[in-house]
């Protein structure tokens, strides 16, 4: 059974289109990353999947059910973000106990162990936590709920590097012991890429790519060398980014679909091929820089005018 399935999913807020016909499906018991810049439509998509928002058009199914206003989906999924609200009258420990009452897979031992490990006070209040602590607490709820569909939307906001590392480790370990479908949106792709199986890449309300993390890592390649070394056929390659370094040197980021003959030729000419990490590839693909010279272009006229 597919855990998630969408077809031509559209979401509009008034006139603004947040999702512009998104189609994909996610296999059960996989960890999928969701990457995209601010405003790409990640949060909208994730909230629709957990039934918190209503789609404007298209089809969306979670374990075969339309999620909006659906008790079945609500009971089998959880949406964790950095804006969660809990009653101010409840202490942190009481909130965890509510979680235990509501979620049928809830592991209270795990919840309490993580709670102690991260140094929370049982009588603490959710609205009195710092941003990083709040994210950590929400993450505990997300892990302990063991929901069939567990969604983390930017779960690491405000967490320091050590806590983020602990979180990824805890997520992987608990996933290995209790496989479930996990969706994780993040701005720190380089930190999570190794624990992801697949990746969804979004830009401006569209789905750019849905591929395995392994393929994403070799999706782009950096080609650098003197301009006159570059063979003509490179013009036909899909250009993601171009950077001039000095008057003669040049680095271009291209889609990595060279034949071995082409690679040989480049090597012979002294052109360097170097890997582009998934997170850099994603920046090149979705950035304002896409196909251009990046933010440098904004400043390119300035030096000239200054020298006049």
């Amino acid at each position: 059974m597919k855990a998630v399935q969408t077809k031509e999913l559209i979401k509009k807020y008034g006139r603004r289109t947040a999702l512009n016909g998104v189609s994909f499906s996610i296999e059960e018991n996989t960890i999928t990353g969701l990457a995209g810049r601010n405003g790409a439509g990640k949060t909208t998509l994730l909230k629709i999947l957990t039934g918190l928002l209503k789609e404007s058009d298209g089809k969306v199914e979670v374990y075969g059910n339309r999620p909006f206003n659906n008790l079945q989906v609500s009971a089998n999924s959880i949406y964790i973000d950095d804006q969660m609200n809990f009653p101010t009258s409840l202490t942190l420990k009481e909130i965890l106990e509510e979680g235990r009452r509501f979620y049928h897979n809830w592991d209270h031992t795990l919840a309490m162990n993580l709670f102690d490990y991260f140094g929370f006070h049982p009588k603490g209040r959710h609205n009195e936590l710092s941003k990083g602590k709040e994210s950590t607490f929400n993450m505990i709820i997300g892990l302990a709920s063991r929901s069939a569909l567990t969604i983390f939307d930017e779960p690491t906001t405000g967490m320091d590097a050590a806590v983020r590392k602990d979180f990824y480790r805890a997520l992987l370990k608990d996933y290995l012991a209790y496989p479930r479908t996990i969706l994780l949106s993040t701005h720190h792709l380089e930190e999570v890429e190794d624990i992801l199986e697949d990746i969804l890449l979004m830009d401006k309300g569209n789905l750019l790519m849905h591929t395995s993390m392994e393929d994403m890592k070799s999706y782009a390649v950096a080609v650098s060398g003197r301009k006159e070394w570059m063979p003509e056929w490179m013009e036909d390659k899909h250009l993601l980014y171009k950077e001039e370094s000095g008057p003669y040197e040049q680095t271009v980021i291209l889609q990595n679909n060279f034949t071995s003959e082409e690679k040989e030729e480049l090597k012979r000419k002294g052109v360097q091929l170097s890997p582009v990490s998934a997170s850099d590839a994603f920046v090149y693909m979705t950035g304002e820089a896409n196909g251009k010279g990046g933010v440098d272009d904004v400043f390119s006229g300035r030096i000239d005018s200054g020298s006049d």
Binding site: G51, A75, G99
Partner: peptide, 10 residues
């Protein structure tokens, strides 16, 4: 707060 845990509108 209503929607912090399992629920739908009804």
């Amino acid at each position: 707060d209503d929607f912090a845990f399992v629920t739908n509108r009804m």
